[in-house]
Amino acid sequence: MHKAAPRHALIGLLWSAFFACGHVSPALAAGVQINLIAADGRPVADAVATATPIGAVPKRPRERKSTAMDQLNKAFVPQVLVVESGTSVDFPNNDSVSHQVYSFSPARKFQLSLYKGELHAPVQFDTPGLVVLGCNIHDSMVGYIYVADTPYFGKTDRAGILRLDQVPRGRYRIQVWSPSIADEPGSMSKDLEVEESGESAVSFRLRKPLRSVPQPRPHPEGWDAY
């Protein structure tokens, strides 16, 4: 038993050196399944789930990515967008009215002056964290950009499950977030050791009931002018 330990450690070191070269073989990557269950036992859909490497685990090479946060019927579409840090986000306004999009979140402060269509250049999100979006004309418009420090992310499906494929072996911090989760953010994080193959699973069961997130209401034009 005791003799075997150094041999394992050596293999581990070799693996680390192998990964440190940035060479990731799909054969050595595994699947991660993240389950999110509400306090009442029902699955939580549409929640952000991320697997962030801890320590020396190399990330998949970062691709220059761009995506979009649309505006329709006085709402951000999607309401929650999750991106890897370094991603550029377009804010096209396909609404019938103009918007003034802003964020004063520490992770990314910006202001897009009054516009329709695709007037503004994309906004780049480099700092991991939560960016809360608002419209200075329509206070009820609320959107979120969750900037993750990992390429391994997604949103839970209707069964409250997110499957991440091709996750290299290593140690990860698994986190889930949604505007409707009322639990302490600290409790929404678990560490996971991903093996070289097979599937690892992490489950989160919320303690507090889900918060109701108001859905945008289609008010007739000119309502709430006063």
Binding site: Y102, F104, K109, N136, W223, A225, Y226
Partner: peptide, 24 residues
């Protein structure tokens, strides 16, 4: 807004913001 509080100023002639009925 640059923080959680947003300021607004009106100057001129306008209705008193007391009605929840006359919102259009």
């Amino acid at each position: 807004p640059s923080g959680a509080v947003r300021y607004k100023v009106r100057i001129g002639a306008f209705q008193l913001p007391a009605s929840l009925e006359n919102r259009s």
